[in-house]
Design a protein around this nucleic acid. Structure first.
Lengths: 220, 220
DNA sequence: CGTTCGCTTGAGGCCGTTCAAGCGACGTGG
DNA sequence: CCACGTCGCTTGAACGGCCTCAAGCGAACG
């Protein structure tokens, strides 16, 4: 995906006029990441907003003891570090390229200038932030209140609703899914197995089939 | 605290002209809550932004099994449900008055109109949302990565930094502190006791004194 | 064919919760 | 002023979920 396509996909810059779009393009700085490269670290001063053009970027939190939590997985056409740049914030997560990736950065100064001179942009920006807030609120609830199997069930149901299919590919390594669910691969494995034994799902390779949606929903 | 004072304290409406301020006052609807009354429930469609004038409002998440997590405790002069009203969201938490309380509500429509006609307001609103994001990010990290004693240590250190005093009142029931730290009173009690045994803190009634800040910081 | 990688499975242990009981502080009514 | 009940807090015992460490195992790949 090139810069133009990526910008068009973002909530923030999607419906701009040709002139405005090319103005935005001028202030984008291209950054290429190798697999497993860190784009920025948690705690670094937030200097830019990023637009993902290709590859996958994981936003994670990690503790000194080595535990990790995946906060968000960014796909091409999405923006990230939206909100970190207000009030002189630091990045609250570290950004890790899961594959070779290309992202574009817009500096804080340029973005603020853009927002100030484009009234609509504020509203869109607030929309983006509010989506993030929603996501984080859900995450907090799930982490604080639910067990791993709760979160796994929620994840599966959500996948089903997203795709409309009772059979779908997980689309990432189980280890990464574990990270997303706030656990580790062993525990995930055991839980998947329990679901299989209970007749809730069927699993082959990377593909899951929901056999008993009702019971799955009752779990959460 | 009356409406005028409360508005003056908020980040959002603090430095308005007299005319604008009185325009805002006109669109505020007064709501009085009794102790333990719910102002709104998680999942309700978000129709208003609120300004707390007196009393304490707890924003909590709870699960069907009865577990609860305190997301935020709102004091007079603060606004809440800032962000819920974008993109047709529902409240992500339920608001519970911990004491008799007075709050003022501004409807979604009125607020959006206000924001659209006051360019500065968007920036302030984004500031408010970005503060919230920061808070939630921290909360996610602590819940996902840390233990109860980590969170207790962080809380104590934070209190110390806030007040500048090594001795301070907790200012809420231990049960509520437990809620805030994502645990229950029994576990909190045991952890406080462990800290006491290790010589990290001293506790008398509702007052904590930090005896060994260094070690406390090393815990986190 | 051997190595690596992702995943699974098992044993053991820790942390936090649940359930149950005890205890001091406080307020109320006798 | 004391007796009693309530409330907030603490403590103990038992249990369970999840993590750690370690080993096994199939598939992909050079």
């Amino acid at each position: 995906m090139n810069l133009h396509e990526a910008l068009k996909m973002t909530f923030l810059f999607s419906d701009l006029s040709v002139t405005k779009l090319s103005a935005i393009k001028k202030i984008c700085r291209k950054i290429e990441c190798n697999e497993n490269e860190m784009l920025f670290f948690e705690g670094d001063p937030a200097k830019s907003l990023y637009i993902a053009a290709s590859g996958t970027i994981n936003l994670i939190k990690s503790s000194s003891s080595g535990r990790e939590q995946l906060i968000r997985s960014v796909s091409p056409g999405e923006i990230f570090a939206e909100a970190a740049m207000f009030a002189g914030m630091n990045y609250p997560v570290t950004a890790l390229a899961k594959s070779k990736a290309v992202v574009y950065a817009i500096s804080k100064e340029n973005l603020l200038h853009y927002i100030r001179t484009n009234p609509d942009a504020s509203l869109k920006m607030m929309g983006a932030m509010s989506k993030l807030l929603k996501h984080l609120n859900r995450l907090v609830g799930e982490l604080a209140l639910g067990s791993v199997s709760d979160r796994l069930a929620k994840y599966l149901i959500n996948k089903y609703k997203e795709t409309g299919q009772k059979s779908f590919a997980i689309g990432m390594k189980k280890k990464d899914l574990a990270l997303k669910l706030g656990t580790i691969s062993e525990t995930l494995s055991r839980n998947i197995n329990r679901f299989k034994r209970l007749g809730l799902i069927k699993v082959e390779r990377n593909r899951v089939t929901i056999r008993d949606l009702k019971k799955l929903e009752k779990l959460t």
